[in-house]
């Protein structure tokens, strides 16, 4: 396939659920980076499913230490490479939304502020899936999770998702982007660009999760497309803080199209769907995707 590295850097046989979006994200990112890459994982789904000792799915050097410290581990790896005079090796970090937006926030902030030359990829499935679908600060408004369940007195999560990309832009990170596994060429182009720009890069990848969101596994990509087409998830990049939308859906679908196919949103009534639609409309305008 033109422009796509045909080598697999994440071997099959890993223990991901059927239809896993995280592995799609990792596979595509690694294709964009190529073999001259060292990967660092935060604790989470991707780490657990890929390295059941004495096996590993990784074809490239890989290290995992704990949940909250992947950016610090990567900083150390970068120091070691520099000390050895190795300058052309990519260092990519994979952290889930919990490992990035919650517990990993401090070490990520530190690494980005220091300008460590690492590519941080957050694979965002909008809850702590590895521990059983608990709410993270990346869980969207209205989602029912095991710690923000919908009930008689609750409509599920009552906060909007943390805007990580904006936080990264505020750090002065030279390359920040959002991506989605449903748009592989866009995702790979962004990862490639991230590797070519000196200094740190942050890419926030939305990856639907059949187990946590409540849909049938074959719909993983479809859900990603719906997120993009409803403007729930806007694909853009920010080069030195300048935001540019990279994928403009031909028509904007109502958010309900996205919400109604997922078990986590099934309890929402018109009022809450309206709140989400308002939020999405505002976000879409702010990013320049719609008038």
């Amino acid at each position: 396939m033109k422009g796509v590295d045909e080598k697999e850097y994440l071997a099959p046989g890993h223990r991901a659920c059927a239809g896993c979006g995280a592995t799609i994200a990792a596979r595509l990112a690694l294709k964009a980076l190529g073999e001259n890459t060292i990967a660092v994982s935060a604790t989470g789904c991707l780490e657990v499913i890929t390295t059941p000792y004495p096996e590993t799915a990784w074809e490239i050097p890989w290290i995992h230490v704990a949940f909250e410290n992947a950016s610090a581990v990567a900083s150390g790896v970068e120091g070691a490479l520099k000390a050895q005079g190795i300058e052309d090796t990519n260092i990519v970090v994979f952290g889930g939304d919990g490992g990035t937006t919650d517990i990993g926030m401090q070490s990520l902030s530190g690494a980005m502020e220091r300008g460590q030359n690492i590519i941080y990829i957050c694979y965002d499935n909008e809850a702590y899936m590895n521990t059983g679908i608990q709410r993270s600060s990346s869980t969207p408004f209205g989602a029912s999770t095991t710690t923000s369940p919908a009930g008689k007195e609750s409509f599920g999560e009552d906060k909007f998702k943390k805007n990580m990309a904006a936080i990264m832009v505020a750090h002065g990170v030279p390359y920040v982007a959002t991506a989605c596994i449903s748009h592989p060429q866009d995702l790979m182009a962004k990862v490639k660009k991230a590797s070519e720009i000196p200094g740190p890069a942050y890419i926030h990848v939305l990856q639907p999760c059949a187990t946590g969101w409540g849909y049938s596994p074959e719909k993983t990509v479809k859900l990603g497309k719906l997120a993009v087409d409803t403007h729930m998830w806007v694909l853009y990049e920010a080069v030195n803080g300048k935001i540019e939308v990279t994928v403009k859906p031909s028509q904007k679908l109502p958010v309900e199209e996205y919400l109604k196919v997922q078990k986590r949103f099934r309890h929402l009534d018109e009022e809450h769907i309206g709140i989400i639609q308002n939020f999405v409309d505002g976000q879409s305008k702010q990013l320049g995707l719609s008038e």
Partner: peptide, 8 residues
């Protein structure tokens, strides 16, 4: 043993 999940 890189890629050894292939055993599974």
């Amino acid at each position: 043993d890189p890629g050894s999940t292939r055993r599974n």
